[in-house]
């Protein structure tokens, strides 16, 4: 079971949380302007990396807020957590972070 640090409440057991998929996927502001390919990419295509993954979790049985987690999908170790709305932080070995 993961030990997840909610940015608002601190470290809590995974049981208190709900996973909510890849983070930083913004709904297109003008869906009608998209072709089918781009719409499908928004709906269905996920990075699914073997390595660092930015993902949303919700502290369902706590403060009930959504926030983001960067987790290594090979070891499942959590590298960092940060509030929703903040950009993915720059981390060593992560070419997808904010400094890209």
């Amino acid at each position: 079971m993961l030990l997840i640090t909610c940015p608002h409440c601190g470290p809590r057991a995974e049981l208190e949380f709900a996973y909510a998929g890849e983070a930083h996927i913004a709904r297109p502001t003008d869906p009608m302007a998209l072709d089918d390919e781009s719409w499908a990419r928004f709906l269905y295509h996920r990075a699914n990396p073997k390595g660092l993954h930015a993902e949303r979790w919700r502290h369902l049985h706590g403060c009930a807020q959504f926030f983001n987690v960067v987790r290594d999908t090979v070891s499942d170790s959590i590298v960092t957590t940060y509030p929703a709305g903040q950009p993915r932080p720059a981390l060593p070995g992560d070419d997808k972070g904010a400094t890209r």
Partner: peptide, 13 residues
């Protein structure tokens, strides 16, 4: 399990 992973193991709960 709830989250994506390549670790070939899951949570006890």
């Amino acid at each position: 399990d709830a989250y994506t992973s390549y670790s070939q193991r899951g949570a006890l709960h």
